[in-house]
């Protein structure tokens, strides 16, 4: 994948978690000089388990990869198990499963999952819903860009979590402050990406629409919006990752329920099994949500020419 464009480096704030979380988004699909179609934002895919994009490969290679995946997972669990029995403070895999079942039977696990998911989805959906129009405005109107850009550039250099103390002071200790920092995390990732998408729309496509008689409104709806969809979806995926990370951290700091809260509590009692349950559930939920967005991505942006 082609390296980031000059525009990216202008926006790129280096050396902090917020910026690196949003970094993949600021790598626009490379514009091949010879192709009109935007290239797939493959590079923008957040790290995912091997085999994620292997669907286009030959079937033989695919099953080969799957086998390797399985071997890797089994191997990893075996090492974990071996470490646990050889004296580390680890729970063994069966202990973790047992604890998970216990937590489930007590209704605690469901409660935590619902609490966490509600927060993350509320923040993420609100964040994306605000980010997409703002990103479009910034890309389309110079005035909007001039007004929004300094603030977005400033806030994206701050990990949303760093704002939690002040948000807690201002918003109290209810759900609002947590949802708000998640909102911020999702918003910042998605807004930059949407903006990049609009700015990167191929000029010739806009000109092609103009010479076919299209006016600004039509160009916006029928050219700019579809052309930036790949960028928006990348932004949403990065935003979701960022939201999820922020959620767990926020719950570790200030919550009465949720997966992060549960792990925090377990830490007091050296209850490593519960902590492991939390880690695994967080990982699985994050993965499932990412796969759902990836699925939407392939459905909505299948028109892209892939290299």
């Amino acid at each position: 994948m082609t390296a980031s464009t000059p525009r990216t480096s202008r926006n790129g704030a280096v050396g902090n978690p917020a910026a690196s979380a949003a970094d993949p988004a600021s790598q626009p699909p490379a514009q091949d000089a010879r192709a009109t179609a935007t290239q797939p934002p493959d590079s923008a895919e957040p790290p995912s388990p091997p085999g994620g994009r292997s669907t286009k490969r030959r079937p033989g290679k695919r099953t080969g990869l799957r086998i390797l995946n399985a071997v890797s997972i089994v191997g990893g669990i075996t090492i974990w198990w071996a470490l646990a029995v050889s004296g580390f403070e680890f729970p063994t895999p069966p202990e973790v499963v047992e604890t998970a079942i216990e937590l489930w039977n007590d209704g605690i696990l469901q409660e935590d999952v619902v609490a966490s998911l509600t927060r993350v989805l509320a923040g993420f959906i609100a964040g994306s819903a605000v980010a997409i129009p703002v990103g479009f405005l910034m890309g389309w109107y110079t005035v909007a860009r001039g007004l929004f850009e300094p603030w977005i550039q400033f806030f994206r250099t701050i990990p949303p979590l760093a704002l939690l103390p002040v948000v807690l002071v201002l918003m109290g200790i209810g759900e609002l402050p947590k949802v708000f920092v998640i909102f911020l995390a999702a918003f910042l990732a998605c807004v930059i990406s949407t903006y990049q998408g609009v700015v990167n729309v191929d000029r010739t496509l806009i000109n092609a629409a103009r010479v076919l008689g299209a006016r600004n409104g039509t160009i916006f709806l029928r050219v700019v919006v579809p052309a930036s969809t790949p960028f928006i979806l990348v932004g949403m995926r990065v935003g979701l990752g960022s939201a999820w990370a922020t959620l767990v951290a926020a719950e570790l700091l200030a919550a009465q329920a949720g997966l992060g809260y549960r792990m925090q509590q377990a830490q007091y009692y050296y209850d490593t099994a519960t902590i492991f349950v939390g880690i695994v559930v967080i990982g699985v939920l994050g993965l499932v949500m990412d796969r759902l967005l990836l699925f939407a991505d392939t459905k909505l942006t299948g028109w892209q020419e892939r290299r």
Binding site: R34, A35, T36, A37, T38, D202, T204, L205, N207, A208, A209, R222, V223, P226, A227, T229, T301, W303, Q304, E305
Partner: peptide
């Protein structure tokens, strides 16, 4: 560069 709309 053809300038076809790739999503259509």
């Amino acid at each position: 560069q053809y300038a076809l709309f790739p999503w259509l």
